[in-house]
Amino acid sequence: MDFQRRTDRLLLRRWLDTDREPFARLNADAEVMRFFPAPLSRFDSDALAARADALFDQHGFGLWALERLDTGAFIGFTGLAPMPEGVPGSGGVEVGWRLAMSAWGHGFATEAATAALRFGFDALGLAEVNSITALVNSPSRRVMERLGMRPSVEFDHPRLPPGSPLRRHVRYVLTATGTVPNAAP
Rank of each mutant, 00 (worst) to 15 (best):
V170N: 05
L124E: 02
S102D: 08
P39R: 07
V143M: 05
H157F: 01
D17T: 05
S164H: 12
E94Y: 13
E85P: 12
R25M: 03
R68S: 04
W97F: 14
D44C: 06
P22M: 09
E154M: 07
D70Y: 06
D57I: 04
A65G: 12
S152K: 09
F23S: 07
F121D: 03
R146I: 03
E111C: 14
G163Q: 09
F74R: 08
F43K: 14
A24V: 13
F56K: 04
V170S: 05
R171T: 03
V153C: 14
P139H: 13
L26E: 02
T78E: 02
G72Q: 09
L126N: 11
L99G: 09
V87I: 15
F3L: 05
G148K: 07
G92C: 11
P82E: 04
H59G: 02
G86R: 11
T133C: 15
P181L: 10
T177F: 00
G105A: 06
G76T: 04
P185R: 09
R159Y: 10
V173M: 05
S140R: 08
D2L: 11
P151S: 01
Q58S: 04
R167M: 01
A134P: 00
D44F: 10
V153P: 04
L124P: 14
V93E: 05
D122M: 02
R14C: 02
W15Q: 01
G178R: 10
M101Y: 12
T133G: 14
L63C: 12
S45G: 12
E21T: 11
S164Y: 12
A103K: 10
G72F: 07
R118A: 15
T110C: 14
E145C: 10
G62T: 09
L126M: 09
L40H: 13
R141W: 05
N182E: 02
R159I: 03
E94N: 12
E145N: 06
D17L: 13
G92W: 12
P181D: 02
M83L: 06
A116V: 07
V129T: 11
L135P: 00
H169G: 13
R150G: 04
V143D: 01
P88F: 11
N27A: 15
F108S: 05
W97Y: 15
R142Y: 04
L11T: 08
G105K: 05
R146V: 03
V180G: 01
S45K: 12
L147M: 10
T175I: 02
E85I: 08
